[in-house]
Amino acid sequence: MVAEAIRGSMDRWDLSTRVQERTGDLLSVQPGRPVELSGPPGYGLTRLGFRMLTAESHIAPVVGVDVRGWMSPKAAWETGIVQERLVFVRCADPQLWPRVTAALVEGIRAVYAEVPVGVRDADLRRLAALARARQMRLVLRPLADQLPSGVAHLRLRAMGVAWEGPDRGHGRLETRKLVLEASGKGASGMVQRIEVEDAGEDAVRVVSGLAVGPSRRAVG
């Protein structure tokens, strides 16, 4: 009886660990495998994008390409990015943006870039090819719609957000739970849903892998 109980507990622990490992991979950006973060502002994707630069900022400079001029360095530092290695490049011109981002891809190891409206699909594909060739980490955040297919290795789409803390005037924002839908080659060609908890003070972390959706055509 005891042995069975322990085995059952170990199996549940093992399953939980596997889920954590798999979903944890979905929240990191691999060299040469661009990630797309899509969803409206307010869902927590900027923080997620910053979080993806954190590890790289400990060994080399990282860059945020800021289209609106709204990115907050303090929020980036809260995710663990090294303060003196974070550089912001402001560029809202869709004609200039591909050149600027390509020049960054040539020399920077990790870039989080907002994509302005009006950038041509061909430029985005060339940029993704360059990131693959240079084996750098690129996170793209389109400000309108989604990126064309063939650009991102992994697409993370924000499906919903819920906050804990405020209560009709009392309390304050404390913890955000964000539901993401992962698709593309980086998600093994399947659509997966994951829930991410963000307590603000430390790194964003995965709470659970919720469900694995039906297999669809791969993106990227």
Binding site: Q83, R99, A103, G107, I108
Partner: peptide
Amino acid sequence: AERAIARIQTLVGPDAVLQAVP
């Protein structure tokens, strides 16, 4: 990285390549 950022400065101007301190 420094070379790339210096090149970006010439593309977008020095006022658009920024860092921050608390």
